[in-house]
């Protein structure tokens, strides 16, 4: 386990309120460099809000956080340069080709032309997408899109990549290929911060946190969590914690 080494994300007493509604309620945790960190929780538990704070899109109401070595309150711009983000609905342009998408995102992150060219070729051959390079995104299969979206989110070699339900709706083989990519990234030292609704995928994470009603109710390795909750599977752990507390999201 890579549970030693430096922290790449440090969160202390982070709070986000919308009016009277507390979406994120005083959460604290650390993520180690190179770790695959699973961030689970029921719908409306506050996962998306927490992620949006960590990637500098929303400013927290209170608390302390350091992401990729930068302070969340004062250096949000620096954070954005050092992280990658792949949203639920992956952010590729449907009417651009594979290579055009890569070039576009590389350009956004300020990669120089010759470096970008090199990275683009590298990326395409890594993914085995040579035959798709001039294909429009809307014409390539969903699985490929998702893999490409992940690679594009990491084109600037970020320290951390945030993945928000990246595998929902894909077939089981592609889902596993996607996880191979995640492991590759982690092996190279990229920290992976991921949310998912597939409980078997939570087993692939080094550590998992489970959010319930804005708070982190559990955080440990999958094996420890199962022991702690005396459960057969992560599915059971999740159900024990996230009991039907149906609440209205804001």
């Amino acid at each position: 386990m890579k549970l030693t080494g430096e922290n790449i994300i440090e969160v202390e007493n982070l709070v986000k309120r919308f009016g009277s509604f507390t979406a994120v309620d005083n959460i604290s945790f650390q993520v180690k460099k190179g770790e695959v960190f699973g961030f689970l929780g029921a719908n409306g538990a506050g996962k998306t809000t927490a992620i949006k704070m960590l990637i500098g899109l929303w400013s927290p109401t209170s608390g302390k956080a350091n992401v990729a070595g930068f302070d969340l309150f004062t250096e949000a711009n620096q954070i954005r340069k050092n992280i990658g983000y792949m949203a639920q609905r992956f952010s590729l342009y449907e009417d651009l080709t594979v290579i055009e998408n890569i070039q576009f995102y590389g350009g956004i992150y300020g990669l120089r032309k010759n470096i970008l060219k090199e990275r683009a070729e590298e990326l395409i051959s890594e993914l085995g997408m040579e035959s798709f390079r001039k294909e429009l995104i809307k014409n390539i299969p969903l699985g490929w899109k998702q893999k490409l979206a992940l690679s594009v989110a990491m084109i600037h070699k970020p320290k951390i990549v945030f993945l928000d339900e990246p595998t929902s709706g894909v077939d089981p083989i592609t889902r596993r290929q996607f996880w191979d990519l995640i492991y590759n990234a982690a092996e190279k030292g990229t920290t992976v911060f991921i949310t998912t609704h597939y409980m078997d995928e939570s087993e692939y994470c080094d550590r998992v946190s489970i959010m319930v009603d804005g708070r982190i109710e559990a955080l440990d390795t999958p094996a420890q969590l199962k022991k702690q909750f005396n459960a057969e599977s992560m599915d059971e752990v999740f159900l024990r914690l996230a009991r039907p507390t149906e609440s209205i999201s804001k």
């Binding site: 029921a42 609704h197 999740f238």
Partner: peptide, 11 residues
């Protein structure tokens, strides 16, 4: 059940 968490799915 797409995009719905495991608890709601089970219910």
């Amino acid at each position: 059940t797409t995009g719905v968490d495991p608890v709601s799915r089970r219910e």
